[in-house]
């Protein structure tokens, strides 16, 4: 079940602290904080070179990981069963055959884009690695808040969320500060909580496509 939410008045809440931190809060069309949203800011800086995508309880943890290009991501398996992590996504096709523990080689993500992770033996396991050329990347927490060690200012901004219906992420500019106004992102919100095994993703996608054709 989906609800179509319209665009609302936009605002960026950025908070510049003494430690030079800006906070970006993303809310959905209804003004509710939106977790697992990727906030990418184009600003000078040095991104982190490694990242970790755990598999815990037959789920990818975190569900959404945002990395800059060139980042090596480790896929440690903390379950007592094996996983077969793969990606058929264009920016990075790879496959980690059935393994325990942490594979010896991390996977390096060189091309920007969205990489959807799956486990070949656990179909419901879906993870997202958002690869961007931007150095500043963060994923919102449960309060929909992402923090950046940046000075307040006007920055080009990119927003994405797994439920974002568009093929391209949202792009714009925003005046960021420690108290940046909340950024609304019109996502399709599943009535159910993110399910362990989505019943019919194709149907959703297909329906979405049909809707667009109708528009």
């Amino acid at each position: 079940m989906f609800r179509q939410l319209g665009w609302l008045a936009a605002g960026v809440m950025a908070a510049l602290t003494a430690q030079a931190e800006v906070r970006v809060q993303v809310v959905d069309g209804q003004g509710q904080p939106l977790a697992d949203a990727v906030v990418s800011i184009q600003a000078p800086g040095t991104p982190a070179s490694t990242a970790v995508m755990d598999q815990v309880g037959k789920q990818f943890v975190p569900r959404v990981l945002a990395v800059s290009t060139g980042t090596a991501v480790a896929f440690p398996n903390r379950d007592d069963i094996r996983h077969h992590v793969y990606s058929f996504s264009e920016p990075k096709r790879f496959e980690l055959r059935l393994y325990h523990g942490t594979p010896s080689q991390p996977v390096q993500f060189d091309s920007p884009g969205l990489v959807v992770l799956g486990c070949n033996i656990h179909d419901w396991m879906v993870g997202y690695i958002y690869v961007s050329a931007d150095p500043w990347l963060a994923v919102t927490d449960a309060q929909g808040i992402a923090r950046f060690a940046l000075l307040a200012g006007d920055y080009p901004l990119t927003l994405w969320h797994p439920d974002w219906p568009q093929p391209q992420p949202w792009q714009g500019r925003a005046a960021l500060s420690a108290n940046t106004p909340a950024l609304p992102l019109a996502v399709r919100i599943s009535a159910a909580a993110p399910a362990a095994a989505p019943s019919n993703p194709f149907a959703e996608a297909f329906q979405r496509t049909l809707q667009q054709h109708a528009d």
Binding site: F88, V116, C119, V126, N200, P201, F202, E204, A205, F206
Partner: peptide, 9 residues
């Protein structure tokens, strides 16, 4: 049947 990778493709 839906072909998933792992999202439906």
């Amino acid at each position: 049947a839906t072909v998933r990778a792992p999202l439906p493709v």
